[in-house]
């Protein structure tokens, strides 16, 4: 049937062969590595010689590694904080930006600017601003006669800086999602509510929020999976420090793999990361229903 359809002159339909270059290319650079990382997690490899099989050694080491436990805890903490900071902001801004007024369109255009820059460029900008000797922080502590404020020097401060910088970078993206979602809500809902005398705040909680339920799921899944893989920002701004205060799982993997060249062990960390990220997104999607999520994504 395949062969017949691919060459059918009557319909002129393309065969599956058209897809093969793209599929092979993607499988080669993403599918195969996904399998290989499992294999590598059972080997000892320094990046130069060939990997050699060591069985479950990396995994038992990983299980007992206090740094890994700390890294998982920090990743979870960072993810939860990022979600809690970004969701309300993006939701409110998105609903606001959904209005078609001219001034809103202009402001939205400015709001999306941070999305255009690389994490590296933004990381450097914020690193400079938070610098305790030269940056804005130094100036602010001068003005208020504070002791030298040094957020990057304290453990919780550094984590909050990461939360803040990634919010600054990613809130615009989620605003876009909520803007798309809010524009899908039929206007008649609001008209009916205002006839009944419901005020704006009430309308927000009884119409906008429930209607955006699926958009919230979409945005949250992307946010959580995104936060689990923050890496550039951490590398640029804190390098996992002070101490190990911002050494989240992806950064631990990088440090093990490409600073210490324990690539076998780093592969085990990577596998753990894949498993956690997949589990979290599947869980969130399952709990809320993927089919319902589709309808909101279409509006984007």
């Amino acid at each position: 049937m395949k062969a017949a359809s691919s060459a059918s002159p009557r319909t002129g339909r393309p065969g599956i062969a058209w897809a093969i270059p793209g599929v092979l290319y993607f499988v080669f650079f993403a599918g195969v590595p996904l399998v290989m990382v499992f294999y590598l997690s059972f080997t000892d490899w320094d990046g130069l010689a060939n990997p050699h099989w060591v069985g479950g050694e990396n995994w038992s080491k990983l299980w007992d590694d206090q740094r890994m436990r700390d890294a998982i805890w920090l990743s979870v903490l960072l993810t939860v904080l990022s979600w809690a900071v970004q969701t309300p902001l993006a939701l409110l801004l998105g609903v606001w930006a959904a209005g078609k007024q001219r001034n809103r369109a202009v402001l939205s255009a400015i709001f999306f600017l941070p999305l255009l820059a690389s994490s590296v460029a933004l990381g450097l900008l914020w690193k400079t601003i938070f610098d305790s000797n030269l940056g804005l922080m130094a100036q602010i502590s001068d003005w208020f006669n504070l002791d030298n404020a040094d957020p990057l020097g304290s453990e919780s401060g550094a984590l909050w800086v990461i939360v803040f910088v990634s919010a600054w970078q990613w809130v615009p993206f989620h605003t876009l999602i909520y803007q798309g979602g809010a524009r899908q809500i039929p206007r008649s809902f609001y008209d009916a509510a205002s006839i009944d005398g419901a005020g704006t705040v009430r309308q927000f909680f009884t119409i906008t929020l429930p209607q955006l339920r699926n958009t919230i799921v979409t945005s949250s899944v992307l946010m959580v999976v995104g936060a689990l893989t923050y890496f550039d920002t951490v590398l640029i701004i804190t390098r996992g420090g002070p101490g190990d205060a911002t050494t989240i799982v992806p950064y631990l993997m990088y440090k093990e793999g490409f600073d210490s060249f324990n690539l076998g062990y780093a592969s085990a960390v990577a596998v753990a990361l894949v498993v956690v990220a997949t589990a979290v997104s599947l869980l969130m999607v399952r709990l809320t229903g993927f089919s319902r999520m589709r309808s909101t994504r279409e509006g984007m």
């Binding site: 080669f28 650079f29 993403a30 195969v32 590595p33 996904l34 290989m36 990382v37 590598l40 990046g47 990997p51 999976v225 689990l228 893989t229 890496f231 992806p250 993997m253 990088y254 793999g257 690539l263 780093a266 592969s267 990577a270 596998v271 990361l273 894949v274 990220a277």
Partner: peptide, 12 residues
């Protein structure tokens, strides 16, 4: 996630 497969990609 790209980070998850960066080590095998490095190998390839």
């Amino acid at each position: 996630p790209a980070q998850a497969v960066i080590i095998p990609v490095f190998w390839i």
